[in-house]
């Protein structure tokens, strides 16, 4: 991670826009990350979402493909 990564724009999308995005693409074309706690994930999550609780993100960034768009909720 370089200093420039801190200046990359992060946009907030509506649920509807994300639904369209996911519908139009195959699961191998994006990273879909659930950053909530495991109990919350267990109760309900977007199909295909990978659980990485927010506290674990810094140590698990390598699990994300940096060449693909990442959706976080």
């Amino acid at each position: 991670m370089s200093i420039l990564d801190y200046f990359k724009p992060v946009s907030t999308w509506s649920a509807e826009r994300i639904r369209k995005f996911l519908d139009q693409r195959g699961s191998g074309e994006y990273n879909l990350i659930d950053v909530r706690q495991p109990e919350e994930y267990e109760q309900g999550h977007l199909p295909g979402a990978q659980l990485i609780p927010v506290g674990e993100l810094p140590n698990r960034l390598a699990e994300l493909d940096p060449t693909k768009p990442t959706i976080v909720y």
Binding site: A15, R36, P38, G44, H45, P47, Y73
Partner: peptide, 18 residues
């Protein structure tokens, strides 16, 4: 995602990651 999971009105899966 604006509004987080609460804004999602589609289908959700249940259960642990594995």
């Amino acid at each position: 995602m604006k509004g987080g999971i609460r804004a999602w009105e589609g289908l959700v899966a249940e259960g642990i990651p594995e």
